[in-house]
Amino acid sequence: MSSGPRAPAPPARRTVSIREKYVPFLISFASVAVVIALVARLVTQAEHWPRIKLQFFNLDAIVAAFPTVLRGFGINMSVWAIALVAIAIWALVLAIFRSLSGPLLAPLKVFAILYIDLVRGIPSLLLVLLFGFGIPALQIPGLPRSSLFWGSVAMVLGYSAYAAEVYRSGMEAVHDGQRAAAKALGLSQWQTLRHAIVPQAVRNVLPALLNLAVALQKDVALLSVIGVRDAVREAQIYTARTFNYSSLIAAAFLFLIATIPMARLTDYVAKKDQERRLQRTV
C-alpha cells in the first residue's frame, strides 16, 4: 500500500459564502412582506372596512365574549380528547372484526361491514341530531339524558367507521410473509393479529389517524346544534345578544390555536414514517 503512488488529496469541500446562504432567504422574506403589506393596505382602504372591523374584529366585543367562549371551548376539547380514545379503540375492534375469517366468526365480519357502510353513508350532523335529540327524548330510565353525552356518542360512532377503514388499510398493507411466519410458528388467528399484524398496522397508519384527529377537533363543534354550550354555541349566544360577530372570530381563533399544532405534529409524524419506510427498502 505504501509503495503505490499517493492518492490525490480529495477536493476541498465547497464552501458556501454568506451571500449565497442568506440572499435567497432575504429575498423570499421581503417578497412575502411586500405582498402582505399590499393586501393589508387594499383591505383597510376598502369602502366597507370600518364596518367589517366593527362587526368581526371588535376588540372590546372579543374581550367581552372571550371568557364564556373559552369555557365552551374547554367542552369542545374535553369531548375531543375522550372521543379520540374511544374512537381509537372501537375502530380497532371494528377493523379486527372485519378482518376475521372462518364461518363461526362470519356474524362479526358482517356486522362490521354493515356498520361501516351504514355509518359512513350518513352525515355526521344527522347522527348528532338523531342521538343528541332522539335518545334523550325516549326518556328510557337508566339511560343518560344529557345531549352532551349522546352527541359525543354520535361523534364516536361516526368517526369510528372512518378510522376502522384506516386501520383496515394498514392491516392489509402488512406483508403476507408476516402471516405465514406467524402461522408457521403456531400463532392462532387472534395471536397473529395481536402480536404480528396490529402493531405493524397501527404504526403504518398513525399519520392517517392523526389526520382524522385534526378533522374531529373541528367537527366536535357540531354538538352546538343540539344545545351543548360549547365555544360555537356560546359565541352564537353572544352574537344574538349584541348583533356583533366578533365572538365567532374569537371562537375561530381558539380552534386555530388547537388545530395548527396538531396539523404540524401530523406532518412531523408522517415525515418520520416516510423516513422509516425508505430506510427499510435500502
Partner: peptide, 18 residues
C-alpha cells in the same frame, strides 16, 4: 404440536419488524 415439531425458515426471513 405440528408447528412446534416442524420449523420453517423463509427466503424473505419474515422477522417481525416491530
Amino acid at each position: 404440536e405440528l408447528y412446534k415439531r416442524i420449523g420453517i425458515v423463509f427466503q424473505a426471513y419474515n422477522l417481525f419488524p416491530h
